[in-house]
Design a protein around this nucleic acid. Structure first.
Length: 281
DNA sequence: GCCTTATCCTGTGTGC
DNA sequence: TGCACACAGGATAAGG
């Protein structure tokens, strides 16, 4: 389940292995992978051919590769199970290979592999350096453009639960279910806490927790649960062993020893400590 | 206009 | 052993 740290690990790999190379051909093996690319697979492939990759960029969970030519980029979202792999062109095709890019230099392919097909890639124009379809996404908390005062005011003006706000990519991007649970555990907040009851200092503490946990995860190469998330070389990160709440149902809280609980939340799960993170009235 | 919910998808694990 | 079903969950369209 790639969130910001995992996507950043992939971005770094792409910057290292793909930047400066010219695309020879693009092959779409599953149309769903480019479902948001309205002109379709043939147009997608034709427009990529002969373009050079200029750099690798990221905002939140979105990645994009600016291309030579006319202000366009190849944009990707990994969804739940998407992988961007840099592999030898002669290596066997992966079972869930969706899109394959080969390069003029005859070096490694860039392959988009995605078991559950929630991810997608597309070509899109850049507007002020950001792909047009994600212009509504807020900066992530590691960007210089992230404005803490604006974030705080907007969060406190909401009428919702704090975890829903953390997952709202138009408020703050890059946070998913795992790091939301971890940040809430650090800040000792229950996920259902109404946003309008949070003081400015408490919001600052929560944001600090978000940055702390995602920064630590990035240092360890990201989190992996079922080998679906890997870097461009197919390797998993090590942050899973550092998780304090997520996925730890019935295991003791490292602060107080109380068993971590799992609660249903938005058709999925939320993990928290019943003692450190009291449910609001 | 804001907020919430249903939907997309497939492999894995569990219970009967 | 085989079957049915729950579960993982980000983004978005649709509904309230």
């Amino acid at each position: 389940m790639p969130e910001l740290p995992e996507v950043e690990v992939v971005r770094r790999g792409l910057a290292q292995w793909v930047t400066g190379r010219e695309i020879a051909a693009a092959e779409v093996l599953h149309p769903r992978a480019i479902r948001r690319h309205v002109p379709g697979a043939d147009e997608f492939a034709a427009r990529l051919k002969g373009r050079a990759v200029l750099s690798a960029e990221r905002r939140g969970k979105y990645l994009w590769l600016p291309l030579s030519g006319d202000g366009e980029a190849l944009m990707a979202h990994l969804g739940m199970s998407g992988q961007l792999l840099v592999v030898d062109p002669d290596s066997p095709l992966e079972k869930h290979l969706r899109v394959r890019l080969s390069f003029e230099d005859g070096g490694p392919d860039l392959r988009f592999v995605d078991q559950r097909t929630f991810g997608h890639i597309m070509l899109s124009p850049l507007v002020a350096g950001v792909p047009a379809p994600i212009s509504h996404i807020a900066p992530d908390p590691f960007e210089a453009a992230f404005d803490e005062a604006v974030f705080t005011s907007r969060l406190r003006a909401k009428r919702t639960e704090v975890k829903r706000a953390l997952l709202d990519q138009s408020l703050i991007s890059g946070v998913g279910n795992i790091y939301a649970d971890e940040a809430l555990w650090i800040a000792r907040l229950h996920w259902a806490r109404p946003t309008e009851t949070l003081t400015r200092p408490k919001v600052a503490e929560l944001l600090g927790a978000v940055r702390t946990v995602m920064g630590a995860a990035l240092e360890q190469g990201g989190t992996s649960f079922d080998s679906l998330y890997v870097n461009v070389n197919g390797e998993s990160g090590y942050f899973e062993r550092s998780l304090e709440a997520y996925g730890r149902r019935d295991l003791p809280c490292s602060r107080c020893g109380t068993a971590i609980r799992r609660e249903a939340f938005m058709n999925r799960s939320s993990y928290s400590c019943p003692r450190c993170q009291r449910r609001p009235r």
